[in-house]
């Protein structure tokens, strides 16, 4: 099935994207990375509406637009928007939609991006709605996996850390079901992947296994996706003390790994990847963040109908 036309489409949740859609976005991202198009979105205006601060996502969206020749208006925190005066999100977005060609938004309330998309005909790109969705993160993750492995199908992928509350790992696991990945989930028992994700994997016949130590899987995987374990997730501080060092990746872990192994992380990193790993050929988290620029450029070009 070919990808549906992207023109004027909203990108709210990775679940709205088919396998063909994802492949199309990655293909365009790669094109734009290889060959910049500084005039492509000339005379187009993007609203960058950040109702909660997220410097990296905001700068990535805004740079993506500017590097394609478009312009950006918006705000970086809710205090300066009309929502602080009690205006509904629906009304606010309807008005903004009349000014601009495309909207990139982040909002702390879950479902806000879907609601915003209902208020305007202009395409809405979700840059994160509370704990719910952050589809551009998943797309840049997939793009990075594709770039480093030259394929998406049939890869061995391990996800490490806080898998219970981590939005990025939920969406990535769900997106990888399109590509027949073999998944390994490494986490303390209380932070393991939630059962509804495991059910989804079973229903789609995706093989997975649960682990408590990085060493159990690291030598057989192609991608090691690290996430941060947050202290506030633990009810017992002692449990945190036990868990925090177990899920720190060091150079020693990498002694016998596959040559093509790449370590990814949605960032910010705190201490879960030792800085000594940065200089190894396996580290890919900084390039991964850079890829956000191309994934977002691809979406902007597609929903504005400038690349078909």
């Amino acid at each position: 099935m070919p990808a549906k036309s992207f023109r004027d489409r909203d990108v709210i949740s990775v679940k709205d994207l088919t396998k063909a859609d994802i492949q199309k976005i990655l293909q365009v991202a790669q094109q734009l990375k290889k060959k910049p198009r500084p005039e492509l979105l000339k005379n187009k205006v993007m609203a960058s509406l950040f109702f909660e601060p997220s410097t990296r996502t905001r700068l990535s969206f805004e740079t993506a637009m500017e590097r394609l020749g478009g312009r950006v208006v918006g705000f970086a925190e809710a205090g300066v928007s009309s929502s602080s005066k009690g205006e509904s999100l629906y009304d606010a977005m309807k008005i903004v939609g009349q000014y601009v060609d495309v909207i990139a938004m982040r909002h702390p309330v879950e479902g806000s991006a879907r609601r915003a998309a209902e208020s305007t005909d202009k395409p809405v790109l979700n840059g994160g709605d509370g704990a719910n969705q952050h589809p551009t993160q998943t797309l840049l993750d997939l793009f990075s996996i594709y770039e480093t492995q030259k394929k998406l199908n049939g890869l061995e992928v391990a996800m490490v850390g806080d898998l219970k509350y981590g939005r990025t790992v939920h969406s990535l696991a769900s997106a990888l079901t399109h590509f027949g990945a073999r998944l390994h989930f490494v986490a303390p028992e209380m932070l393991q992947m939630p059962s509804y994700i495991l059910e989804e994997l079973k229903a789609k016949k995706i093989k997975y296994s649960l682990h408590e130590e990085i060493d159990e899987v690291i030598n057989k995987v192609d991608i090691l996706y690290m996430t941060r374990i947050q202290k506030e997730r633990f009810t017992d501080p002692l449990d945190y003390e036990r868990a925090k060092d177990v899920y720190v990746l060091t150079k020693d872990h990498l002694a016998k790994v596959k040559k093509n192994l790449r370590v990814m992380h949605p960032l910010p990193r705190v201490n879960e990847i030792a800085t000594e790993v940065d200089a190894t050929p396996h580290a890919y988290y900084f390039e991964q963040a850079e890829n956000g620029l191309y994934a977002r450029q691809a979406l902007l070009a597609l929903v504005l109908g400038k690349i078909k």
Partner: peptide
């Protein structure tokens, strides 16, 4: 409680 339907009339 953090769903948009609980914060606005939807």
């Amino acid at each position: 409680p953090n769903c948009i339907t609980r914060q606005e009339e939807v």
